Structure formats: C-alpha cells, structure tokens
Amino acid sequence: MHHLLIACPLAVVLFLTVGCRTTWAQEASGQQPANGSSDQETVKAWNAFYQSDAENAYRFVLQPGDIELRLDPTPILRWTNPLEQGDIHGAVYVWRKGGRPLVVGQLFSYLNNRGGRVYCHAVHSLARDGERLTGSRDGKVFWTPDSPGVQMHDLPMAPAPAASRNLRLTQMKSFSRRFSAYTEEASRGKRNLRLLTTPLDRFPENALEEPDGALFSLVVGNDPEVILVLETKNSAAEGEIWQYGLIQSTRSTSVALLDDKEVWRYDANEKTASDRSSVYLSVHGIATLPLEAPRSPAD
C-alpha cells in the first residue's frame, strides 16, 4: 500500500491497535497482530497516540449540507506488508455519513535513519457526483478533492439483491471472486494481488433507506492495494440492483479485472498522490515523531 521513500534496514514500524480487537480481514488472512515491540507499555502508548490523533486531529466535512462525517471508533483493518522495507505496519479507518463510508483513511509510521519516526497519512474519497469533501488536520485544511472519489457501475450478470442482510453478504462474497487485480512498478514489474473474500468493511444496518454494501480488499500480505466497493442501488428502470466501484490504496500503477477483463486502471505516471486536490492523497512525513510516544498529538 505504501512504499517507503527512505531505505531503513533497521526500521521499526508502529502497529496501530485498539484493545485486543481482531479485524475481519485479519481473520480471513490468518495473520496475527504484530506489536512491533516487546515492551507492551510502549505499544499501548503508541496505540493511544494514534487513536487519539484519528479521533481528535482529523475532521472531514461533506457538502452540500455542511455534514461532519463520523469516525468509526476502531480501525477496520490492521495491516502488515512483509515485502516492503522497514517492516511497515498500519491501520485503516473509516469516516461515514450514516452507514455509508465516505472517507477511507490510514495512519502509519516507520523509523527513520536519524533517531526519530516518520509519521504518515493516506486518505481516499468515496464521494459521488454532486458531493464535495474537505479534510482538515488540527484545524488546517489539507485535502480538497476536486472530483468524485469513486465511479459506480452496474454489475453485469448479477441477480437482484437478496431480501435478507445475511444473504446479501453471501452474494457480495460471491461477486468479489469475479474480480482480480495487480500492480505495476518499474523496479518490481507486475505483482498479482490476493483477494480477501471476508469484507474489509460491511456497511452497518441503518434505519434510514441507505444502500447495503461492503468494501473488499486486494492485498499484498494483508496490506490493501486496491479496494472494491459493492453496494445496492434502487434503479427506476430495473428496481434494486448491484453496483461496483474500485479505488486505489497505493501509489503504484494498479489494474483491476472483472471476469478477466480490465475494467479499471490507476496510472501512477499520470497522477500525483501528494496533490491535495486528488481523490487519493498519500503523504509521508506529515510529522517527525520522537522515539517515545508523545502523550498527545499536540506534544
């Protein structure tokens, strides 16, 4: 998902956790959470710092309506990427309007070669046509995506959404297996991604008439590189139908296929991930942290 800009052969990365929660994606991959340290008190201190930063420093507002999005209280995934230098780890958070995810964001860090830690964030918009997002950190605007974050398409050869929530989940798991993806880099060439058929996120049940849906991840290790969005939609012509969309979660060129036919591509040569107007923003070095966890994000 994230490629270190500094070679750090002795790097130690902080793994964001909340309590002893094991995410769906971890269960699907069979991977256990990594502490990144044998000192449990140190781990707890870093966990508290990251959780506090997600809760207190970040704010996302949706227009029209000036609606502040709600952060899920725990991360939807804790990930590792054993193929990257620095033993990098991270956590994925979701900010919602009602039950629908509008922002998928990450906080992660790694040890630099100067006795400190490089703090990073990455965010992706799931806003649709007619919606606009603004992201701020510590009261300062850092992200103003200038276009819809995901394009949804009717899923071909898909039965109508089932009547029950459990059966709709079964349908989505089946649909997800029709998708595959890979990344391309000059240094590595083509790298096929692995689908986790257990959802990264399931839209919560809501009394409002909102779509049902889920996010699925295509991964290296259990680090999402491409995210698949599946959700229901009421169509005037066809009634309730299934739709899909795809978003990137890496700076690398990424390609997704449906039934072995290319349906989506993110070309890293044409996009700048550090551009604040991009729907996908990834910035390394938003802060340099000391070796010991600060008591609060402001320390």
Rank of each mutant, 00 (worst) to 15 (best):
H3S: 09
H3D: 08
I6R: 05
L10H: 14
L10M: 13
L10F: 14
V12C: 10
L14K: 07
L14Y: 02
L16Y: 02
C20K: 13
R21Q: 15
A25I: 09
A25L: 14
E27C: 13
Q31P: 00
P33N: 13
S37N: 12
S38R: 09
S38V: 09
S38Y: 08
D39C: 12
Q40C: 04
T42S: 13
A45V: 11
A45W: 04
N47Y: 06
N47G: 08
A48H: 09
Q51I: 02
S52A: 15
A54I: 05
N56D: 12
A57D: 03
Y58R: 04
Y58F: 15
V61W: 00
Q63D: 04
P64D: 03
P64I: 02
I67K: 06
R70Y: 05
L71G: 04
L71H: 04
L71I: 08
D72C: 08
P73C: 06
P73T: 06
T74L: 12
T74Q: 14
I76T: 06
W79L: 03
Q85G: 11
Q85Y: 06
D87K: 13
H89Q: 15
G90A: 08
G90R: 01
W95N: 00
K97G: 01
G98F: 02
G98N: 08
G99C: 09
G99P: 06
R100W: 01
P101E: 05
V103P: 00
V104I: 15
G105F: 01
G105I: 01
F108M: 07
F108R: 01
S109E: 05
G116N: 07
R117F: 11
Y119F: 15
C120G: 07
V123H: 00
H124G: 03
S125L: 00
S125T: 00
S136H: 00
P145T: 01
P145L: 01
P148Y: 09
P148L: 12
V150Q: 04
V150W: 02
H153K: 14
H153G: 07
D154F: 09
M157N: 15
A158W: 02
N166P: 02
R168D: 03
R168C: 09
T170P: 01
K173P: 00
F175S: 03
S176V: 14
E185Y: 07
R191P: 00
R191K: 14
L193Q: 08
L195V: 10
T197A: 14
T198L: 12
P204M: 11
A207Q: 11
L208N: 08
E209H: 10
E209C: 08
E210D: 08
D212T: 10
G213W: 01
V220M: 11
V226R: 01
L228T: 07
T232V: 06
T232P: 02
N234C: 04
S235M: 07
S235D: 15
A236R: 14
A236C: 07
E238P: 00
E240H: 08
E240P: 10
E240C: 10
Q243T: 15
L246H: 03
T250I: 06
T250H: 03
S252H: 08
S252F: 03
T253R: 09
V255E: 04
V255S: 06
A256T: 09
L258T: 06
L258A: 07
D260Q: 15
K261H: 10
V263G: 05
W264L: 12
R265T: 15
Y266M: 13
Y266G: 06
A268L: 09
K271W: 09
R276V: 02
V283F: 04
V283N: 02
G285T: 13
I286L: 10
T288E: 14
E292I: 11
R295K: 15
P297F: 06
